[in-house]
Computed example of a mutant assay.
Amino acid sequence: MNKKRIKKSLDLKKNWPGYVLLAPAVIAVFTLSIYPLFRGIYLSFVHYNLVRPNDAIFNTFAGLDNYKNIFSNKIFLQSIGNTVKWTIVNLVIQLLAAMLLALALNQK
């Protein structure tokens, strides 16, 4: 009995206006989030250079070579460290400011 109720509530003929209204949002989420995510993952595993698209190795499989190159680059590692430091300092300042403001607004 419960399965029939669930199946009836998902009936396409009955609920088609809802599905039609939901379709643009689903398409937007796919095109703006999911597709770029998978495209970025794909590009991280191939030789891809927009400056020289006529190279013989353009868009060929690189495996983990791109990751080896980036994690052996000292400038990249320094930028990751700077990002982590900036994030921690920024979060601490924001948290302290928010707490002080909340305490000030909580006074009678």
Rank of each mutant, 00 (worst) to 15 (best):
L10K: 02
D11Q: 10
D11K: 05
D11H: 05
L12P: 08
K13Q: 00
K14L: 09
N15S: 11
P17Y: 03
P17E: 03
Y19I: 00
Y19T: 02
V20P: 04
V20M: 06
V20Y: 06
V20G: 03
L21C: 09
L22N: 09
L22K: 10
A23F: 02
P24I: 04
A25F: 09
V26H: 07
V26C: 07
V26L: 14
V26Q: 01
V26D: 02
I27G: 05
I27Q: 04
I27D: 01
V29D: 06
V29C: 13
F30W: 11
F30E: 13
T31V: 12
T31K: 15
L32E: 08
L32W: 06
S33P: 00
S33M: 15
Y35W: 15
P36A: 01
P36I: 09
P36E: 02
L37W: 09
L37K: 02
L37I: 08
L37N: 14
L37R: 13
L37C: 01
F38K: 10
R39M: 13
G40T: 11
I41G: 02
Y42F: 14
Y42C: 08
L43F: 06
L43H: 07
L43C: 03
S44I: 05
S44Y: 01
F45D: 03
F45E: 01
F45Q: 06
F45L: 12
V46E: 04
H47C: 06
H47A: 08
Y48T: 01
L50V: 11
L50C: 04
L50I: 05
L50T: 13
V51E: 14
V51H: 09
P53Q: 06
P53H: 10
N54A: 14
N54T: 04
N54Y: 10
D55H: 02
D55C: 02
A56N: 05
A56L: 09
I57Y: 11
I57D: 15
I57P: 00
I57S: 04
F58K: 05
N59K: 05
T60G: 13
T60P: 04
F61G: 09
F61L: 15
A62N: 07
G63L: 08
L64A: 14
L64E: 11
L64S: 13
L64C: 01
D65K: 12
K68N: 10
K68D: 12
N69M: 07
N69L: 09
N69D: 14
I70F: 06
I70D: 00
S72A: 12
N73F: 14
N73Y: 07
N73Q: 14
K74A: 12
K74D: 08
K74N: 07
I75M: 06
F76W: 15
F76N: 12
L77I: 12
L77N: 13
Q78G: 12
Q78N: 14
Q78M: 13
Q78T: 15
S79D: 11
I80G: 04
I80C: 09
I80Q: 12
I80H: 10
I80M: 11
G81W: 03
N82P: 00
N82I: 12
N82F: 12
T83Y: 13
T83M: 09
T83E: 15
V84L: 10
V84G: 11
K85V: 15
W86K: 14
I88F: 06
I88L: 09
I88H: 07
V89I: 15
V89C: 05
V89G: 03
V89M: 11
N90W: 12
N90V: 05
L91V: 10
V92Q: 09
I93A: 13
I93P: 07
I93V: 15
Q94D: 02
L95Q: 00
L96Y: 00
L96F: 08
